Computed example of a mutant assay.
Amino acid sequence: ARQEKRISRGRILGGTSALPGAHPWMAALYIADEFCAGTLVSSCWIVSAAHCFLRNPLKSQIRVVLGQHSFNDTGPNTRTFAVQDYILYPPVFAALVKLKKVEGRCALKTPFIRPICLPGKDLTFPDHSCCKISGWGHMHEKANSYSHLMEGVVKIIPFDQCSSPDVYGSEVRSGMLCAGSESCVDACQGDSGGPLACDCDGVSFLYGIISWGDGCGRSGKPGVYTLVNYMLHIKSIFHTVLYAL
C-alpha cells in the first residue's frame, strides 16, 4: 500500500550528516503532534506537502523553525515563527505556508537561513540528473525517532520507468517525478514536504517536493516528488502567489 512520507524522521535513509547551514532553506514544521519539512522560497513563504495538513490543524497549532540543525532544537542560529495562513492544493500534493511577521518582518537572511531559488518556466533537469534531498526523517522504515539534518543524492528516474506497472503504474501522473538511488538513498517518514534541490551553474533550485512512496528505500520503489515546475505554471493560487514573490 502507498505509504505517505510524513514528517517525523530522524534522517534521510542511507544519507550522510549535513553540515550546519548546508541547506539554509530547510524549514521544520511542527504541526500539532506531527512533524513535516518545508522549503523557504521567500522571506514569508514556505512550500511543503499537502498531506501534512489534511487534518486541518489550527494555525495556532503550527510552529515553523528556520535554521534548525538538530530535531526540535531552537539554538542561537534558529528563528521560530507562527503561521498566518496556509493554502492546500491537493491535486499536486502541495501546500503553501505563510509565516506571521515579527516586528513587521518575516525571515531575515543569515548564514543558516536563506530562501532557495524557484525554477523558471524553461528550467528542466534531464533524466538521470543528480539532485539532493535533505531532512530530519526516519533513518529506516520502522524507525520512530529524529535527529540532526541529513542529506543524500538521488537521480531523476525517467517518467516511463516510474509509471510502469511494476513500479507505481497510474498512481504516478502529470506533475510528479520519481527519484532514487542504486545505493538505496531515499526519503522516509518525517521528510515529507522537504526539498529535492537540483543545481544549475552553482545555484540550487527547488525542483521537487518530497511527497510519497512505498516504504523507504525499497528496491524498485523510488521516492515520488511533486514537480515544482508543474505547480508553478498551472493556473492556480500557487501560480498567483509564487509569481508574486
Rank of each mutant, 00 (worst) to 15 (best):
G38Q: 04
P24Q: 09
A18Y: 00
T240P: 00
L227M: 10
G135F: 06
S163N: 15
R105K: 15
M139H: 04
P20T: 06
K109E: 15
P91G: 07
E182Q: 12
F71Q: 02
D186N: 03
I12W: 07
V241A: 03
D73A: 09
C200S: 13
A107H: 05
S147H: 09
A22S: 15
T78R: 03
H239D: 13
Q3W: 01
K155D: 10
C198I: 07
P222W: 12
T124H: 13
G220Q: 11
G152Y: 05
E141V: 06
T240Y: 11
C188W: 01
P111E: 04
P119F: 02
Y168K: 03
Y146D: 08
L29M: 14
G75L: 00
P90Y: 12
I209W: 00
K59C: 09
S147Q: 11
M139Q: 08
S174A: 14
R63M: 14
V203Y: 00
G217W: 04
H69Y: 15
A32S: 13
D33N: 15
N72V: 03
N144S: 15
K59S: 04
F125R: 02
G137V: 04
L54D: 14
I237H: 13
G21M: 03
V64D: 07
V153A: 11
V102D: 03
A107E: 04
V64F: 02
M150G: 08
L29I: 14
